[in-house]
Write a protein that binds this DNA or RNA. Structure first.
Lengths: 243, 243
DNA sequence: CGCTATACGGAGCACTTGCTCCGCAAAGTA
DNA sequence: TACTTTGCGGAGCAAGTGCTCCGTATAGCG
């Protein structure tokens, strides 16, 4: 079957300069808008800010998702690179770790689209920048291993980052510095002077019986819900004999 | 001016039984749906699940917001009551505190609408249930004050709750137990054996210069952005002389 | 300059979602 | 039962949003 020709005989012209300029303007505007408002923005807003029509935007990025992906790719890659530079620069492993959190929470936790996707992407990183970021954290974790309490994993550090990132967003408007206290507390909790072992990640044979105690009345939103519900909760209630 | 008459001369009939039944069905369905999907649900979905038409739903709750508010009121109040019961029941202050977090994160952190509004509502609690919840935490904090590191406030505990609640939601699908490790770490960081003082909440004269170091390139989404931007970032780029 | 491949803009389509309107059914009353 | 008041359902409106279509402009090439 015909493979996409690596160098077609009928060479396509190089892209026009205005096309290149427009593409860059779109990405630039999208970066700002996605940082401010997250991925829920109206595409028209991006088009307006970049001074470009909808047609132009959609030729360069056929789906909104494509544009978002491109922006996130750039942002995460840039983040990973600067984080790696800082990590290499610091000689004290603990300072490197705390510095990483400071940088991340001060600089990136307010980027709405980044934080929206960071959590998702951590489980299945489809973006290369995220993989690189994970590598940096792995390295920080490895270097500080003697200072960290035993059993702390890269995933713990990542989840802490996501968790604190949310705290930053939540407090940003009214108490923009409050998250520092939480970071301080968490980092202290990570230190090696705590000998008590951390609970297992996935608990196959936990001693907590599934649903016997505290959580009252709030149903699990996910699947398995139906196992406890008397009827499929998506089915409309039987309507009373009307009219 | 005429106050709403406490007992009008023309007494309105009591509401019909079917109206009462429908109202309850709506609230019940809305509770489930809001827990599962958050406040972004389609109102039609609530109507369908409660076996009621749109007209009925909107007579009982003229705005979607009214329905959401009613559901959240009930949920937060129930949460606060059960939390208070548990807090009173426990004799060990530390066990009471950890038990509260366990209950909250196991039972309520998966309730999407609750978590959406919890953060917002903590700053300006418009719901009575949230105020009650805060009181419970205040009490837990006061009772455990000797076991907590100096300077820990109710707001710290609340922010920690919001932060960990997000961690629960994020990991719920693929690693449903992982948040326990983070809770363990955070609680250890809260203990009294840490003597290092926590950073100030709002830092009026912080020694960190505003924008001199780490945070690279990510613009603050909120106001004050314009102070650094060369032009109002909401204004479209000057279009090139076209056609 | 003239020609053509390339790129552009924005009206408009399709779909979603909050909410309304109104003809009709049913509960309550006598 | 006859009648009034209250309540009901769901089609449909208005506004928002992702995306397309197509007539027109322009960059690049000779």
């Amino acid at each position: 079957m015909a493979v996409a020709e690596p160098e077609s005989p009928t060479r396509r012209r190089a892209p026009r300069v205005d096309a290149i300029r427009n593409r860059e303007a779109i990405v630039e505007a999208a970066t700002a808008v996605l940082a401010e408002q997250g991925t829920a923005v109206d595409v028209r807003e991006i088009a307006r800010r970049s001074g470009v029509g909808m047609g132009t935007l959609y030729r360069h990025f056929p789906k909104k998702e494509d544009l978002v992906h491109e922006v996130l790719r750039q942002e995460f890659t840039g983040w990973a690179e600067s984080a790696r530079r800082e990590a290499i620069g610091a000689e004290d492993p603990w300072a490197a770790l705390t510095g990483f959190y400071q940088q991340a929470l001060t600089g990136y936790a307010r980027h709405r689209a980044i934080m929206e996707n960071f959590a998702l992407a951590c489980s299945s990183p489809d973006l290369d920048g995220i993989r690189q970021l994970r590598l940096v954290i792995e390295e920080l974790c490895a270097r500080a291993t003697d200072l960290l309490r035993p059993g702390v994993t890269t995933d713990d550090l990542l989840l802490l980052l996501v968790s604190l990132g949310h705290a930053v967003q939540v407090t940003d408007e009214h108490h923009p510095q409050r998250w520092h206290r939480l970071l301080h507390i968490s980092l202290d909790g990570l230190r090696a002077d705590h000998r008590s072992p951390l609970p297992a990640d996935a608990a196959p044979g936990t001693d907590r019986k599934p649903d016997s105690e505290s959580p009252p009345a709030v149903r699990r939103p996910s699947t398995q819900d139906s196992s406890a519900a008397p009827r499929s909760s998506h089915e409309p209630r039987r309507r009373r004999t009307n009219r």
